[in-house]
């Protein structure tokens, strides 16, 4: 227990002892996490935008004449079981007649003497899906029903939106990985400077019989503390910036930026700990090799 306390206090004291390298390391973690955090907030909100758009996706299915309402209800249930379908709404011939009247102010029976409007079903698609939402297989399955006369959907537009969203997700992930790898390398090199400056300390540790893990632990803990401090500052900056600009963004785009400070802090702290742990472990392990 005393050994753990000693190693923890060594890691904390090293923050003060290695002020310059601590500042460099914390600053690079702060920059990295600010960029990574911005990317995460943007992609999180883009997900909301795509969900909003998907909510508007509709497939309209028109049935042939003389199909009973009961059969239409059965088919509607079968539509709902198709993968990718969220809900279905049946519009019977009677409903269609009412809609016509509400929209045009005339009863269609008075105009043409009978009800030519077909029964239809409006299909809404799933919103929460990470992968590209492919509408084509759904339409193909619907068309297989002999009772279906016509299927209307905005296939090309939906395909474009989905492709653009997938490209954005891929670019974000690649960008995030690049940022994190670069930051691990930067932190590793910064910690290496500390280690070279502390060669004497390491030599002393080795001469008095310290094991590799005993020598490594304070340096790794020091790195983790850098990560936590960098994450905290980055979270504060992002929180402040979003608080400051959210009103402006709302008035400009009508979009409410969705984020929670504590989620952001937790996410960035985790990232900060991981990258600083990897960076400092790499540096000290290479030195002790």
């Amino acid at each position: 227990m005393d050994k753990i306390t000693f190693l923890l206090s060594e890691g904390l004291k090293n923050l003060w002892r290695h002020k310059l390298t601590a500042f460099t390391s914390i600053f690079s973690i702060f920059l990295t996490l600010t960029v990574a955090g911005s990317l995460l907030i943007v992609s999180g909100n883009t997900e909301r935008i795509i969900e909003y758009l998907r909510d508007k996706y509709k497939i309209e299915v028109f049935f042939k004449q003389n199909i009973s309402d009961k059969r239409i209800q059965e088919i509607s249930k079968e539509f709902k079981s198709i993968r990718g379908v969220r809900s279905t709404t049946v519009i019977t011939k009677t409903d269609a007649k009412k809609i016509f009247k509400s929209q045009f102010g005339e009863d269609i029976l008075n105009l043409v003497g009978y009800n030519p409007l077909p029964a239809s079903c409006v299909i809404n698609l799933v919103k929460e899906q990470k992968n590209k939402l492919n509408i084509r297989p759904i339409v193909d399955r619907i068309r297989k029903f002999s009772e279906v006369d016509e299927v209307n959907y905005q296939g090309r537009l939906i395909n474009r939106i989905e492709t653009a969203y997938q490209s954005f997700v891929k670019v974000s992930v690649v960008l995030l990985i690049i940022i994190l790898v670069v930051s691990v390398l930067i932190i590793s090199n910064t910690v290496r400077l500390t280690i070279y400056a502390k060669k004497e300390l390491i030599k002393s540790f080795q001469l008095v019989g310290a094991t590799r893990s005993f020598i490594k632990t304070p340096f790794i803990l020091e790195g983790v503390f850098h990560g936590l401090i960098g994450a905290f500052i980055a979270s504060l900056l992002l929180y402040g910036s979003l608080e400051f600009s959210s009103g402006f963004i709302l008035s400009l785009t009508g979009l409410i930026i969705d984020f929670s400070f504590f989620n952001l802090l937790f996410l960035l702290s985790s990232l900060g700990i991981v990258i600083s742990f990897l960076g400092s472990s790499r540096a000290i392990s290479q030195f002790l090799k």
């Binding site: 005393d2 050994k3 306390t5 000693f6 002892r17 030599k203 540790f205 001469l207 008095v208 005993f214």
Partner: peptide
């Protein structure tokens, strides 16, 4: 080979921390 960023007590205590003695 004394460590300049630690006082005399801490320098002498170092091997004991390494071995894992109680405080």
């Amino acid at each position: 080979h004394l460590l300049n960023d630690r006082n005399l007590f801490e320098n002498i205590a170092l091997p004991l921390h390494v071995i894992g003695f109680q405080k």
